[in-house]
């Protein structure tokens, strides 16, 4: 893991809750992780585990009734004079000038729905140049030239023509490429990719992932890759954060997570991947039970009702904290608590 001494983004004990009439949903409940320059960090978990809300919390675009109630999100920006400044994003006004200057400029976002993530009322070029003009203060012509350049960079053929087309005139793969071009138009240090390939067919998925890898090599940006696809994680990521019900249950370098997972949830997730080497006609192991209803969160360790190693009287009473289990690897499970 070659990365700078200080993470570009540090999330500490982040809690984002949704205050609804029926009760409070703890979408993110104490997430802690670091993202380093040039690193690809995979955030994995089942649907509803708080991956996307984490991403939106970082950008401060969590929609009402959601709100960050606790925690820190420290962004370290490199200044032109070579120094870095630290900003706690949770302290900023979400619609304030500084937060808006960070959004799109320092942190780019691409997500799942290439179909609807562009507005159908404006050309691709209009929507890309908008971000460029906002952050880089370029003239109309310069911004347009840059937009075309970006479209070429992400491998869209005939970009000088595509720039004047509408999103519904592009195929899903091209649309996702255009989306990447838009997210990277202002050269952000961090790219948050929220399920970037989920809606694409497998061939296009591979192309988009290869594109992201190439762009990362060329530009040295950090990627926060949110996915439920462990194959994508193995392919792309340097480090992994596994989330369950808004909490980080395990994190570490990708190799260690795949070969030496410690948390029972991670182990169960890995067992449920179909493998070429597995015996044929054998049922794929699944994680027993299903994700608890958001309003009926289990007490103690959130995973204990589905856990094979549950210790009654402990797991259903107390909540475990992240413990070092190997070099650079941590898991939040009582199996590894030193006192147990």
């Amino acid at each position: 893991m070659e990365h700078g001494p200080e993470p570009i983004l540090s999330v500490r004990n982040l809690k984002t809750y949704f205050f609804q009439d029926e009760g409070i949903v703890h979408a993110v409940d104490g997430a802690t992780f670091d993202l380093y320059r040039g690193q690809t960090l995979g955030i994995v978990g089942e649907s509803g585990c708080g991956k996307s809300v984490t991403a939106r919390s970082v950008l401060r675009i969590v929609e009402r009734p959601g709100r960050i109630v606790e925690g820190e999100i420290i962004l370290r920006r490199e200044q032109p004079n070579g120094q870095t400044d630290e900003i706690d994003l949770t302290k900023l006004n979400p619609d304030g000038a500084l937060m808006r200057a960070i959004r799109g400029k320092d942190i780019g976002l691409i997500f799942q729905e290439p179909m609807t993530s562009f507005s159908a009322h404006y050309t691709i070029g209009n929507q890309i140049t908008e971000a460029i003009r906002l952050h880089l203060k370029l003239s109309k012509a310069e911004a347009r030239a840059r937009a075309i350049e970006m479209l070429r960079l992400v491998g869209i053929p005939k970009p000088e023509r595509r720039v004047d087309e509408y999103s519904f005139q592009l195929s899903g793969g091209l649309r996702q490429r255009a989306m990447i071009a838009m997210a990277l138009a202002c050269d952000p240090g961090i790219l948050i990719a929220d399920e970037p390939t989920t809606a694409l067919d497998v061939t296009t998925q591979a192309q988009i992932l290869a594109l992201l890898e190439r762009l990362q090599r060329e530009r040295g940006m950090a990627i926060m890759l949110i996915t439920h696809n462990l194959g994508v994680v193995a392919e792309m990521c340097d480090a992994v954060v596994v989330m369950y019900l808004g909490r980080v249950v395990e994190k570490g370098p990708v190799r260690q997570i795949f070969h030496n997972a410690r948390h029972p949830y991670t182990q169960a997730l890995l067992r449920s991947i179909p493998s070429i080497e597995a015996a044929p006609r054998v049922k794929l192991p699944t994680i027993t039970g299903s994700i608890p209803h958001p309003y009926k969160r289990p007490k103690g360790c959130p995973f204990h009702p589905r856990c094979a190693h549950v210790m009654p009287g402990l797991c259903d009473v107390q909540t475990p904290a992240l413990q070092p289990v190997a070099e650079h690897q941590e898991a939040s499970c009582f199996l590894y608590h030193p006192s147990q």
Binding site: R56, L59, I61, D95, R100, A101, I102, R103, G104, K105, G108, L109, F111, Q112, E113, T116, S117, F118, S119, A120, H121, Y122, Q127, E130, A131, L134, H135, M179, M182, A183
Partner: peptide, 26 residues
Amino acid sequence: RKPYVVTARAKGLSETRVILKYPVRA
């Protein structure tokens, strides 16, 4: 509630601009 509104927000546009340019137009 459509994703393109999130996209517009993620670009760093002000909330007024986001709403008037994109969803209101639609």
